[in-house]
């Protein structure tokens, strides 16, 4: 009962967004009147939304690639050397995205990257860097949990005693074992990157605004248009989450067999 009530609380706003995005007009009534696909066509035909959509995808994909390349060696190194520094770094990574509010971090970017030495404010690369920094901890935590759970250290010792060099161990044992967690971590990373608004809104240039940044403008327009633009973002996020759930399930199945 309680869980159902809670699920209603979760799904009511989404349901209203969905209904609203197909509604012709919606002013001062419970639900909209009329059915139309007009709003979605409007989004499709709007050049600024199209551009933002593409920027968002570019940023998300680049973020995924860079985060993987950074997080896998990092997680491996920190779990292998259980020294004090490694422990501290892990804890720091766990709390850093929350301890530093996004607006503050963005302000830091404005201060540092608008200097003559580093005039990167407004570039897409800086947006990607911001997304990398804010998603790295999530990927890191997913990987560390999996490395501990799979007892990779033991497997690596075994491979070492069987004659495998570091490279062989990494590509034969570690990477295949981590592929599920890398993938499910990536889906969270891409979902966060696609939805990120608070930092990007302050550091993006006019031409490389991401989808959420442009989305905010539509809130001041027609309800139907706002609903359909929001639905587009929501569908992107849902696709990511569903992907994550599916990989997690197939991973747990693989473990059972």
């Amino acid at each position: 009962m309680l869980v159902i009530a809670y699920l209603v609380y979760i799904f009511l706003p989404i349901a209203l967004l969905l209904i609203g995005s197909f509604g012709e007009t919606w002013t001062n009534t419970f639900l909209p009147t009329g059915f139309t696909l007009r709003w979605y066509l409007d989004v499709w035909n709007d050049p600024s939304f199209r551009r933002a959509f593409i920027v968002s995808l570019e940023v998300a994909v680049s973020t995924c690639v860079i985060v993987t390349a950074l997080a896998v060696p990092l997680a491996y190194a920190l779990t292998r050397s259980m020294g004090k520094i490694a422990g501290l770094a892990g804890r720091f990574l766990a709390i850093m995205p929350i301890a530093a509010p996004p607006a503050v971090l963005a302000f830091g970017y404005i201060l540092i990257f608008s200097t003559d030495a580093m005039p990167y404010l407004g570039t897409t690369w800086l947006i990607i860097a911001a997304h990398v920094v804010s998603t790295l901890p999530y990927m890191f935590q997913t990987l560390v949990a999996d490395i501990r759970h799979l007892h990779l250290d033991k497997l690596e010792l075994a491979a070492e005693s069987l004659g495998a060099s570091f490279g062989q161990r990494f590509f034969h044992i570690i990477l295949p074992s981590l592929q599920h967690s890398i993938f499910s971590g990536l889906v969270v990373v891409s979902a966060i990157s696609i939805g990120e608004f608070q930092i990007t809104n302050l550091i993006a240039g006019f031409l490389n605004r991401t989808y959420p940044v442009v989305l905010l403008q539509s809130f001041y327009g027609a309800t139907g248009f706002a609903c359909s633009t929001t639905m587009v973002l929501l569908l992107l996020a849902c696709a990511s989450a569903a992907g994550s759930a599916l990989t997690a399930r197939s991973a747990s199945r693989a473990k059972k067999h």
Binding site: L155, A158, E160, S161, L162, G163, S177
Partner: peptide, 20 residues
């Protein structure tokens, strides 16, 4: 001599079989 070049066979308490 590093472990991988010692040519010793080792059996571990936790089996340490590669799961995949």
């Amino acid at each position: 001599v590093p472990a991988r070049l010692r040519n010793v066979g080792m059996v571990f308490q936790s089996y340490a079989l590669f799961p995949l």
